[in-house]
């Protein structure tokens, strides 16, 4: 799983890079527009360690934001699974809020919280929270009637058992959603850093953009891709282990 993720990323990144270089050499563009291979190589040597550290910094914020989102989504999803007025309100609110582009709220968060760790965390969590919530609410509010029937008939059904049954029956779906939400969390963190933060790989991209330094941006993209691939691969391995432990 991990190998596949890394291999897929490297393949796509290489193809993208080759395309850029092809455009550069076909149209005779200068290094200022698209850097040549050797300039890219030199830039990577200069900034890769710093960018790797910043990439890990960004990823750590994204992971904390994603974990907070997962916990909150499960809490709200479990409350909202019931066909009560509270459950209905939670579902309707989730569907409506999800339709709004959360990134547009980011400037308000920076105005209120300043450009530190908290703003990045908050935006990362918000961006991956709503898709997660929709999936969790969907899974938790869908009865698994062929299993739940017995427990309802015999009066044994408790909310913990109901949640356990529904989570178990949808484990593959849940792990896929959680792995997928890591991309959103990282995107949220980078967007936050890109808008106004003072640290992280997104902050470096913003500086490189002001300098019109595409080589640095390409190195930063490589760092983002490789850290995300490793993280998603690890999440998939974790999901696979949980499934295996629960079913074997």
């Amino acid at each position: 799983m991990l190998h596949n993720r890394i291999f897929q990323f490297l393949l796509i990144y290489t193809l993208g890079l080759l395309l850029l270089l092809a455009v550069k050499y076909i149209f005779g563009l200068s290094d200022y527009v698209i850097p040549g291979f050797w300039l890219l190589w030199r830039t990577a040597g200069d900034v890769s360690v710093r960018y790797a550290v910043d990439g890990v910094n960004t990823l750590s914020v994204a992971i904390i934001g994603q974990m907070a989102s997962i916990l909150l989504a499960f809490f709200i999803g479990i409350v909202g699974r019931q066909a009560t007025w509270l459950g209905t309100i939670v579902k309707v609110a989730a569907y409506n809020v999800q339709a709004y582009p959360i990134v547009a709220i980011a400037p308000i968060i920076f105005i209120l919280l300043g450009d530190g760790f908290l703003s990045r965390l908050f935006i990362a969590a918000m961006i991956c929270y709503f898709p997660l919530l929709l999936s969790v609410v969907g899974i938790m509010s869908e009865p698994v009637t062929d299993i739940e029937h017995f427990y309802q008939q015999t009066g044994r059904m408790r909310w913990q058992l109901e949640v356990k049954i529904r989570a178990f029956e949808n484990l593959s779906k849940l792990t896929t959603v959680i792995a997928g939400s890591s991309t959103l969390a990282l995107a949220g963190t980078i967007v936050a850093e890109f808008i106004a933060a003072n640290a992280g790989i997104g902050y470096n991209i913003r500086i490189a953009l002001y300098q019109s330094d595409l080589a640095k941006i390409l190195v930063a993209l490589f760092m983002i891709g490789i850290t995300l691939s490793i993280y998603q691969g690890l999440l998939e391995i974790l999901g696979h282990s949980v499934r295996k432990a629960w079913t074997s």
Binding site: F150, K164, I165, T247
Partner: peptide, 25 residues
């Protein structure tokens, strides 16, 4: 009462062996 209704489309959860589940219920 109690009146129970069982049907042939029911499943037991697959998270543990049937013997354990039977003892538990």
């Amino acid at each position: 009462q109690p009146l129970l209704y069982a049907h042939n489309l029911e499943r037991l959860p697959d998270w543990s062996a049937i013997g354990d589940q039977l003892s538990r219920v």
